[in-house]
Amino acid sequence: MYGFEYSKAASAEAAAQSLKDDEDAKVLAGGMTFIPTLKARLAMPTQVIDLNSLPELSGITVTADTVRIGAMTRHAHVAADADVKAAIPALAYLAGNIGDPMVRNRGTIGGSVANADPAACYPSAILGLGATVHTTERDIDGDSFFTEMFETALQEGELIKAVTFKRPDAAAYMKFPNPASRYAMVGVFLSKGSDGIRVGVTGAAPYAFRFAAAETALNADFSTQALENVTIDPDMLNTDMHATAAYRASLVLTMTKRAVDACL
């Protein structure tokens, strides 16, 4: 690790201001991505501002229509929360299958969403449930949040404070984990709600996206047969040492069908 200054955040707004004052400052959440990056000397921040000093950023509020999760809420907390399990069981399931128990005891939803790893699980739920990302500056529509690989709509010095998910009538998350890293090789979050079907896909492309062709087919006929003639263009998908784009295209359809099955 290169050297840096360390401080505990006094508030989300104060931390955001420090990021505006010093473009090489970074915030630390669960550290599950950021600390390995520091260890590998892939980042050289001047200062690290620790958000773990802000309990007000952690917590879950469930209403009749929504589930709001504070940015510093750990994956283990979401996975075990009785209200989340009752309101959106698929979201608790997603959180409970991120990495391993130690990762879940530290990793946070804010860190995961801000980081926008192409293989991270939560981005599929942001799109698959129709979420709003609340920041120190504004509310961002989840559909326009992921913009490129590891890139989001967040501006310099803008921090996530919470995420609000819409409660669906039914939802499922189907993950095909990379056997080594446990990240999603492909993950599909599907929901059925008052504004129709949403299918959020992670792991397959440079950043999470909505599978529009599947949504159209499923809005007309909510069955796995409806997906028989739906295809996905492998040209928009990733090829790496773990899987070719063609294999990922096949996985996207298979995971989508499994998610439909789970909602029937």
């Binding site: 360390y6 550290g31 599950m32 600390i35 530290r106």
Partner: peptide
Amino acid sequence: LNGEPIKSCTLLAVQ
């Protein structure tokens, strides 16, 4: 850490 398993290689000493 406070009763919960965590990976100490992924935590700063100051924390």
